[in-house]
């Protein structure tokens, strides 16, 4: 198939970016979206232009490194997949495809389609863990966990930290990302001792990074490649309310 591409080009964080038009011929429907970009880059280099920078790594939908706004939708038109798992058979010959980076204050652009997502790491660093040092663990089967609880925790833990939720949110909120980790740990007995402190500290960190507040719009859930449920945001909000009565979040 032949495609018209409109790709965001920006030299670096300081410079002004713009959409640039390219035509790309002979794209096989078997290609992944990123293989289509590889093809574009080979063509650009042959023509003496600089290739388009974009983040990617595992190309099997699990590392969370790739993230593109494709025709205004985070990770593109197919539900529940990352850009690397989106295949060109989902497009048609002659289509125009607009490709942009994630746009959020907390995710500054580094170059072209590459953004800085270290704000996510800092939310996890604030309290997104269980404080257990190597060697201090009890026998694994001492604490039974009901299968339904463990499964629900796993649903939340499936988050790959790609940032699509932020990119899709009109407020650029990171609440789905934050809630996924907080809920994963809050749903397990090991996570209880730090549960309410964790909720407060992670949300504070989210605010400090410049992410917006959550107004339950639900765009995040709609684009999440791992289908993380909005219910986890409700869970985190419940924990936050309880934490406010407990005065939690001052330590750790």
């Amino acid at each position: 198939m032949n495609l018209k591409l409109r790709v965001w080009r920006q030299k670096n964080a300081e410079s002004q970016g713009r959409l640039v038009d390219y035509e790309l011929k002979d794209v096989s429907p078997e290609y992944s979206f990123l293989e289509m970009l590889d093809l574009l880059n080979e063509k650009l280099m042959r023509e003496g232009e600089l290739p388009v920078a974009f983040d990617h790594d595992c190309r099997e939908g699990i590392c969370g490194m790739c993230g593109l706004m494709i025709n205004g939708v985070a990770h593109g038109p197919k539900a529940a997949v990352t850009a690397c798992q989106l295949h060109m058979r989902n497009f048609h010959d002659g289509d125009t495809i607009v490709i942009e980076p994630w746009r959020a204050t907390a995710f500054p652009i580094i170059k072209d389609l590459v953004v800085n997502r270290t704000a996510f790491d800092r939310i996890i660093q604030a309290a997104g863990y269980i404080s257990v040092s190597t060697g201090s663990a009890p026998e694994a089967n001492n604490t039974p966990i009901a299968k339904t609880e463990a499964d629900l925790a796993m649903d939340a833990a499936a988050c790959i930290g790609c940032g699509a939720c932020v990119a899709a949110c009109p407020n650029s909120s990171a609440m789905l990302f934050t809630a996924a980790k907080a809920s994963h740990l809050a749903l397990m007995p090991q996570g209880q001792p730090e549960r309410y402190d964790r909720a407060v500290l992670m949300v504070n960190a989210m605010d400090e990074e410049g992410f917006g507040g959550c107004t339950n719009i639900g765009e995040c859930e709609a684009v999440c490649p791992k289908e993380i449920s909005l219910d986890f945001i409700a869970q985190l909000n419940r924990d936050l309310i309880k934490a406010s009565f407990m005065g939690a979040g001052k330590r750790l």
């Binding site: 863990y129 269980i130 257990v132 190597t134 060697g135 201090s136 663990a137 009890p138 026998e139 694994a140 089967n141 604490t143 039974p144 966990i145 009901a146 299968k147 463990a150 499964d151 925790a153 796993m154 833990a157 994963h184 740990l185 397990m188 090991q190 996570g191």
Partner: peptide, 22 residues
């Protein structure tokens, strides 16, 4: 065996049987 203990303590959501064991 220690690895499994450590990872469970960290909150790794391993698959469980209905009785709650790994």
């Amino acid at each position: 065996n220690q690895i499994i203990d450590q990872c469970v303590a960290q909150g790794v959501p391993f698959a469980r049987e209905y009785g709650g064991r790994l």
